[in-house]
Each structure stands twice: as structure tokens, then as C-alpha cells.
Simulated scan of single mutants.
Amino acid sequence: MRRLYHQTLSPFCRKIRLVLAEKGIEVELREEKPWERRMDFLRLNPAGQVPVLQMDDLTLADSGAIFEFLEETQPDPPLLPKDPAARAEARRLAAWFDDKFQREVTANLLYERVNKKLAKSGYPESERIKAGLKNIRYHLDYIGWLMDHRRWLAGNQMTIADFAAAAHLSCLDYVGDVDWSRNAGVQDWYAKIKSRPAFRSILADLVPGFTPPAHYADLDF
């Protein structure tokens, strides 16, 4: 049994879905609503967070730990470079998006506008939304700077850093919060990674009550 418990607009889940698809690992997707605190799900992961990956008799939680397991057990194609310094840079940037970008952008935009509505946990806070819209400009500029100097975010090879960044941006793009016209290099990078076969199932995602913009699934946007 190979099953991924996930939430459609969770960047951490999307990152793992991209990794699984890139490595050609087929899994059953099981939609989970973490705010419901289902006892059966809590038995799998007492933290009550997605993603959770079941691989036969093994249950794995936390997107970082899941990625490292998959990279070690299914190394082809590699999503970490061979060079130790390049590996460190890929991990640094993956952590940048899963920590700094998450706190400054994703939590302020996606969680306020979407997750609160889905979980029926209150109304969006306008100040947090304003902060998220301000912060995303800084992060887009940083991605643009990286792409001025590199082929991919962490260097000449596509790595987990690209999937981590694309996972966050794809969630925000679903709700129309990414200004792709701000930096041509960022748009070109996202178009390149968005065109990969691993992205197909993500671009087909639909969340009840939320309609993505017309360009969301367009590979030539």
C-alpha cells in the first residue's frame, strides 16, 4: 500500500507530490482535513499535520523527512546534487521556502483567505493579507536574483529547492496572488518547472468554493 494523506492547497503536500511524480512513484491520494482532528489520522501522525506517506508497513510524516527518505531510497532521478556544497545550498533554499516564505507569505495569504474559510475558523485578517502581499514582492525579487545567476534556484541542476518554491507559488497562484509580470526571470523559471510532467496532477486540482484564474493551468502564461 502506498498512500499519501494530503491537503490540496498545502505547499508541503504539493512538494511531496512533485517529488513522488518526478521519481515515478505512484501513490493513492487521500484528502485529509487536518482541522477535523480525525482520530484515525492522529494515530498515523500525532502532530495532526499533512503530508503523511504510507509506504507498505512504514508511515512517514513531515515533508522534509519524507523527502529525505524518498531521496535515499529512490535516488533516480536525484533531487540533491552530488557535491556537498551544492547539496547544502539546495537544502538551504528548500528550508527558506518552507520556513521564511511560509511564515511571511503563505501563512498570511493562503491560510487567511482559504484555510480559514475551509476550516470555518474565522474571517481573514486584513493586516496579515497586506503583509503577505508586501512580503511576496521581496521573495519574488530574490528568486529573480537567483535566476539571474543560475539555471535553477540552487545551481545548474533542478533540485528540491525548485520543487519547494514551486509548491508554495502554485498554491498562491491558484488564488491569484502572484504577480508574474514583476520579474521575467521568475516567470520563465516557473513556466519551465510548471511544464514538467510531475506538475500535471497539481494543475488539475480544484478546491470547492475557489476557482483558479484562467492562467493557472496554462503552460504558456
Rank of each mutant, 00 (worst) to 15 (best):
R2F: 10
R2Q: 10
R2M: 12
R3I: 09
L4S: 03
Y5I: 02
Q7N: 11
Q7P: 00
Q7Y: 15
L9K: 07
C13Y: 00
R14E: 03
K15I: 08
V19D: 06
K23T: 10
E26N: 14
E28S: 01
L29N: 04
E31F: 01
P34C: 02
W35S: 11
W35V: 12
W35T: 04
E36T: 03
R37G: 07
L42T: 01
R43W: 03
L44S: 09
P46F: 14
G48S: 13
Q49A: 10
V50I: 13
V50G: 04
P51H: 11
V52I: 07
V52W: 01
V52K: 02
L53V: 00
M55E: 05
L58D: 05
T59D: 04
D62V: 04
S63F: 08
A65Y: 11
I66R: 01
F67V: 07
E72D: 15
E72I: 11
E72V: 12
T73M: 11
T73K: 12
Q74D: 12
P77Q: 12
P77V: 14
P78Y: 09
L80R: 05
L80S: 07
P81H: 08
D83T: 00
D83H: 02
R87S: 12
A90R: 04
L93Q: 06
A94R: 15
A95N: 15
F97A: 06
Q102K: 07
Q102C: 13
E104P: 01
T106L: 02
A107W: 06
N108P: 06
N108H: 12
L110W: 06
Y111L: 14
R113H: 08
R113T: 14
V114E: 06
V114Q: 09
N115P: 01
K117Y: 13
S121L: 11
G122P: 08
Y123S: 13
P124D: 04
E125P: 03
S126V: 14
K130P: 00
K130H: 13
L133E: 15
L133T: 00
N135F: 12
N135V: 05
I136Y: 01
R137A: 02
Y138F: 08
H139A: 06
L140A: 00
L140R: 00
Y142S: 00
I143H: 07
G144M: 06
L146A: 03
L146E: 05
L146G: 01
W152M: 05
A154L: 05
N156G: 09
M158Y: 04
M158S: 01
T159V: 10
I160W: 02
A161D: 09
A161P: 05
A164S: 15
A167E: 02
A167N: 02
A167Y: 02
L169A: 05
L169N: 03
L172G: 02
L172T: 02
G176H: 08
D177S: 10
W180Q: 00
W180L: 01
W180S: 03
S181Q: 13
R182P: 03
N183Y: 06
D188V: 10
W189F: 14
Y190D: 03
Y190R: 00
K192S: 15
K194N: 08
A198M: 11
S201T: 13
A204T: 07
D205H: 12
D205Q: 11
P208M: 07
F210L: 08
F210E: 08
P212W: 12
P213N: 07
H215F: 12
D218K: 14
L219D: 09
F221W: 08
